[in-house]
Amino acid sequence: MKKFLADKSGLRDHAAPAIARIERRLFLRKGLSLGALAMLSGCDVTNDETVDKVLSAMSRWNDSVQAKIFDPNKLAIEYPESAITTPFPFNAYYGEDEIRLVEAESYKLELSGLIRERKPWTLPELYALPQASQVTRHICVEGWSAIGKWSGTPFRTFLERVGADTTAKYVGFKCADDYYTSIDMATALHPQTLLTFRFADQILPPQYGFPMKLRVPTKLGFKNPKHIMAMYVTNTYPGGYWEDQGYNWFSGS
C-alpha cells in the first residue's frame, strides 16, 4: 500500500490521510476481533505459560482455602435407599470395554510409607473388618451427580489398626487400572470416609472397582479411587492421575 502511494505522488496528498484513517480503523478492528477471539476461544490465553502459572497458583491457593473450609465433623447428607440412582453411571478415564479384572484369590493390598504394620491384606482379612454402610451423593467434577450405597470399613479404623501416622499430610492410592490419586489426612479420618467392598449390598462389581474402592462423600468422584492395590502414607505431595493434568487437588465438596 505504501509503495503504491509513493509512486502516485499526486494522489498521495489527498488520499493518504483518508487511507491512513482506514488502515488505522482496520488495524483497530483486527486488534479488537483478535482480542475478542482470544478471550472467547481460549486458544491463545490457555496456551500462554504465564497464564498457566497464575491459574495453577490459584488452584494451589484454592487447595489451602478448601482445607480450611473442611470441617472434620460435618457429615454429607445420607439418603433413603429409595433415592439410589439406577443404573449407577460407570465412570473412569477409559471406556467400559477396558474395565480391569482383579483376581480375588491372589489379591493382596500392599501398604507402605508411614505405616507401622505393613503386612499385605488378603480379601478375607479385609472383609472381616468392622462394617458400615452409607447412601450418599457421588458428585462428578463434570457436574453430574448420582446417589449410591456403599459398604465397608471406616477408613479411620483401618488406618489406626495398621498403625498409620495420622499426623502425616497425605494418603496415596495406586490402582489396578494404573489410576492413582491422593487425599489429605483430615479427609482420610472423616467418619464417612469408607474403604468399601460392596455396592448396593453386592460385592463390588468390576465396573464399580472390585475388589475395593475408597468412598469419600466429602470429595468429588475422581478422588474416590477404585481397584485399590496399594496405599501409602506420606508427607510428600503425591498428586494424582487427573490432578497432575491440572484438576484441582483438594476437590472437596
Binding site: L40, S41, G42, T46, N47, S59, V141, E142, G246, N248
Partner: peptide, 14 residues
C-alpha cells in the same frame, strides 16, 4: 474459555 474441562474449571475458580 479454557480449552478443556480442567482448564475451564481453573479459570472459573480463579
Amino acid at each position: 474459555l479454557g480449552g478443556w474441562l480442567g482448564g475451564a474449571l481453573n479459570w472459573h475458580f480463579a
